[in-house]
Computed example of a mutant assay.
Amino acid sequence: MAEPVVRVELTASFLDRLAAIESFLTEADAASAYDRLLGELRTTVIPNLRRFPRIGRRYLDQPPQSAEALAQLAAFPAGAADRLREYPHGDYLILYTVATPGHLVHLLSIRHHRELSFQFSRLWAGPAGSPDR
């Protein structure tokens, strides 16, 4: 029996974060690092998520402790926070969600592992669609 095809979609918030990473690395004279990141997303991360959509650890296995982050999580659509997963790749953490029944992955955000936290306020907004399908 063939494995179901899992589609991986990039949200507007993920694309915004990629643009911010590109700007930062370009200003730091490290544009080649951005090119490497894009290549790794295409050749490693996205194929891994297509094959193993639940490869990342559950985000809520170690929930945030701040009142602000907990309030943002509480404002998510019903059940959405439980589907959040984190995929570590090199120096980056990728936040994504797996839609039920598991044939669609939304890449929500990407950040350098040294950044303080993901910015949740815009993850479910914007024209790129909602991961609640």
Rank of each mutant, 00 (worst) to 15 (best):
R7N: 02
R7H: 03
V8P: 07
E9H: 06
L10G: 00
T11G: 02
A12C: 14
S13Y: 09
F14G: 04
F14N: 05
D16Q: 13
R17K: 09
R17F: 02
L18W: 07
A20G: 07
E22T: 00
S23P: 01
T26V: 09
T26P: 00
E27H: 06
E27P: 01
D29R: 04
D29Y: 00
A30Q: 15
A31M: 04
A31N: 01
A31I: 05
S32C: 06
S32N: 04
A33S: 13
D35L: 15
R36M: 02
L37N: 08
L37S: 06
L38W: 06
L38F: 08
G39R: 12
E40L: 10
L41S: 02
R42A: 11
T43A: 14
T43H: 14
T44D: 11
T44G: 03
I46W: 02
I46E: 07
I46S: 05
P47E: 09
P47H: 04
N48L: 15
F52D: 02
R54A: 10
R54W: 09
G56L: 08
R57I: 11
Y59L: 08
Y59K: 09
Y59P: 09
Q62V: 14
S66H: 06
A67H: 08
E68A: 15
A69R: 05
A69W: 02
A71C: 06
Q72P: 03
Q72Y: 05
A74E: 14
A74L: 04
A75T: 04
F76S: 03
A78N: 08
G79F: 11
A80S: 13
D82C: 02
L84H: 09
E86Q: 12
E86H: 02
E86P: 00
Y87L: 14
Y87V: 02
P88V: 01
H89S: 09
G90E: 15
Y92C: 04
I94Q: 03
T97D: 01
V98F: 01
T100N: 13
P101L: 10
P101Q: 09
H103E: 10
H103P: 00
L104Y: 03
V105Y: 00
V105D: 00
L107R: 10
S109N: 15
H113L: 11
H113K: 13
E115K: 12
E115T: 05
S117H: 12
S117V: 10
S117D: 15
Q119N: 13
F120D: 06
F120I: 02
F120A: 03
S121F: 11
S121R: 15
S121H: 15
L123Y: 01
L123R: 01
W124F: 15
A125C: 13
A125K: 13
A128R: 14
G129M: 12
G129I: 09
S130D: 09
S130V: 07
P131C: 08
P131Q: 04
